[in-house]
Design a protein around this nucleic acid. Sequence first.
DNA 1: CGCCATTTTACCGATAAAGATAAGATGGCT
DNA 2: AGCCATCTTATCTTTATCGGTAAAATGGCG
Lengths: 94, 94
Amino acid sequence: MEIEPNLLADVGRRLRALRADQDLTLEQLARLTGISAPALSLIETGKRDARLTTLAKIAAALRVPIRTLLEDPADAVSTGGDVPAEGYDLGDYL
Amino acid sequence: MEIEPNLLADVGRRLRALRADQDLTLEQLARLTGISAPALSLIETGKRDARLTTLAKIAAALRVPIRTLLEDPADAVSTGGDVPAEGYDLGDYL
DNA sequence: CGCCATTTTACCGATAAAGATAAGATGGCT
DNA sequence: AGCCATCTTATCTTTATCGGTAAAATGGCG
């Protein structure tokens, strides 16, 4: 039914951004998750419809809640799981 | 691997609760989503590792963000409030 | 208890995910 | 240009999802 036009592409983009934040290569993330690098590449490029446990493994390896992969950061409200220790540094955002 | 002990069972429970809130049968939700009732049953009982787009279809039919299926309601912060209080009038569609 | 809706389970076939591997493509860097 | 790391794409095999159908539980309710 494709309610979300390009859900997979969006998830892939967020995944790639998160991986870049931690300076991980696909190969490194593959070892952390047990998911092959080609499979990760397909997911990140929005070409594969991953299973829930696959996304969960990736999220766990990246140390973020699965929710982070599914929604816009702007829409995401911090829910207390991994609250920053020092408060928010909004940096140049303001 | 398996950081979340029974992720699928948890998702299934939330799914079932959401469906119950809207007084939908598996058969009705099946028609709304295009996913067969047996498949929905397997997902709700935590016996199937659904794909992302499958979960997205279900969430769309239930009119909740996908995030709702993945996290504890206590942990969830209402962000949009597009959740109907009383359910929908599906008319002759069902 | 006997119906009836609802759900669960079991089979089937088609499609797709995921691991492994290897081969291209991309990009940076000297 | 050449080299190197990284990423992409392709192929193959194994495994699982998913829809369909049908058959068994399950659960009310009269």
